[in-house]
């Protein structure tokens, strides 16, 4: 479900937030449905609840999750769209730039890249 890479240089709470986002995008957590609680996350991954809470609260601040008092955390309506928008902004930076750098190292031409992208689509 939520997979965290404990050796990555990214802080754990950020990884947690992005893992929850991934699962919202994939439709594992649908809008207006409940996501695992900080307690469940903390126990499952054996991480301090303060860390789990920090990750979840980040998504609350971003308007992705909201808290129903006494019930738990839920996915906001429009969360999926919001995440997509946010990720599109960094898509070029995170993926295209790396792709072009790697292509340069391998001497892959612009046309070859385009052909590959078309094949992938």
């Amino acid at each position: 479900m939520l997979l965290l890479d404990f050796n990555s240089e990214t802080p754990l709470y950020l990884q947690l937030a992005s893992a929850i986002e991934d699962n919202i995008l994939r439709g594992v957590f649908e809008e207006e449905t409940q996501v695992p609680s900080t307690t469940e996350i903390s126990v499952n991954f054996k991480i301090n609840p303060a860390t789990a809470g920090k990750g979840v609260n980040l998504l609350v601040d971003d308007g992705i999750l909201y808290k129903k008092r006494g019930v738990g955390m839920f996915v906001c309506t429009g969360a999926k769209e919001k995440i997509m928008e946010k990720r599109r902004d960094v898509f070029y930076e995170n993926f295209i730039r790396t792709l072009l750098e790697e292509a340069k190292k391998l001497n892959i031409s612009k046309n070859e890249i385009i052909t590959m992208i078309e094949r992938g689509i």
């Binding site: 754990l12 991954f45 301090n48």
Partner: peptide, 27 residues
């Protein structure tokens, strides 16, 4: 430890030299 702590928060001090393994449960 995490299950108990979540249900029943206490002040916990863990003395160790095995830092890698314990890091994620510490605050």
């Amino acid at each position: 430890l995490m299950a108990r702590y979540n249900e029943h928060p206490q002040t916990i001090i863990i003395s160790t030299h095995l830092i890698d393994e314990i890091a994620d449960v510490l605050e």
